[in-house]
């Protein structure tokens, strides 16, 4: 009996506040927008009994999903979100790998401190970390000021409110998610393998390429997914650092809901976004499982 209660409490909570809300989104994505409160129809009419339920289901259709394909704002936003997330993931890997590599090669008594230095920014407010870049990248910001006083550039560069600023923002805020799994993989690497390779005549670079890279693959894959998946649906970074041309689906969804108040279309946007993310999420879970099996 106790056992049942213990299972039921978190189970019911997640069913009620995670799974059921998601089915409501699906339902509303099949509804039509209406000038009412709440602003969509049909409404399920319980008092009309069986007839009411039938009428309700008859009024649902895929019209909103059709609308998403006709207005090119949406598919362009999906594509550009995937592209921005993909490029940022690659950049994060390029920045993060050497840091993780350096950490793994640092003397052992330094490592806990280095770990904490990587984790500390993660505890600091995400919003503040994005905001910090606004002052640096703006037209009369610090970066332009420094570059101009050094004489590198004659006129201030426009970085804030472009895609470049979005890339910088994503790399900066998601960097710990890339570093930690790669570091975890590299730290386990047996250094005698590298020594053996060098003894056998491998150059350092070849040894790195043939031993370090394959053995850290799992960490790299985990890091890439941890950056890519949330970056696709990112809202704060494109709205603060991106420009009016920066199209990202998280921002489109937010505006569809709060500015246009078109709840059915916003719900349809959410459903499609989730369908797109299911593939990388499943791949990520499988990679994690493989890693667990390799360890266990």
């Amino acid at each position: 009996m106790r056992r049942l209660i213990l299972i039921a409490i978190p189970y019911v909570w997640l069913l009620a506040l995670f799974l059921i809300p998601f089915f409501i989104v699906v339902k509303i994505s099949l509804s039509d927008v209406a000038l009412a409160r709440p602003p969509y129809m049909p409404q399920l009419d319980w008092s009309a009994g069986w007839e009411g339920i039938r009428n309700f289901f008859a009024a649902l259709d895929f019209e909103n999903f059709g609308f998403l394909t006709t207005d090119d704002l949406y598919w362009k936003a999906y594509l550009s979100s995937l592209q921005i997330a993909g490029i940022s993931t690659l950049l994060t890997l390029i920045v993060g790998f050497p840091i993780a590599y350096g950490m793994a090669r640092a003397p052992e008594h330094w490592r806990p401190t280095l770990m904490m230095l990587v984790i500390l920014p993660f505890w600091t407010s995400f919003l503040i970390r994005v905001y910090a870049w606004m002052g640096i990248l703006s037209q009369n910001g610090l970066l332009n000021g420094v570059l101009m006083s050094l004489g590198v550039i004659g006129e201030p560069l426009t970085i804030l409110n472009t895609d470049v600023a979005v890339y910088i923002g994503i790399v900066y805020t998601y960097l710990p998610f890339m570093i930690l799994p790669i570091y975890a993989a590299l730290e386990k690497l047996d250094s005698s393998l590298l020594e053996a390779a060098e003894d056998l005549g491998c150059s350092r670079l070849t040894a790195f390429w043939l031993i370090t890279v394959p053995l850290s693959k799992q960490g790299v894959i985990a890091g890439c997914f941890l950056v890519f998946i949330p970056a696709v649906g990112e809202f704060v970074i494109p709205s603060l650092l991106g420009g009016s041309e920066t199209l990202m689906i998280g921002k489109v969804l937010y505006e569809e809901f709060f500015s246009n108040r078109d709840w059915p279309v916003a719900s349809a946007v959410a459903v499609v976004l989730l369908l797109i993310l299911v593939i990388p999420i499943v791949l990520f879970q499988r990679n994690e499982q493989k890693q667990r099996e390799a360890e266990g």
Partner: peptide, 27 residues
């Protein structure tokens, strides 16, 4: 299903979680 519901919110975009909960509260 239970373990799926534990892991899914970790990677789910905030906008989807927020939207779905708001629609529940309004409903």
């Amino acid at each position: 299903l239970f373990s799926g519901m534990i892991y899914a919110p970790l990677v789910m975009p905030d906008v989807i979680l927020g939207l779905s909960l708001l629609l529940l509260f309004i409903g």
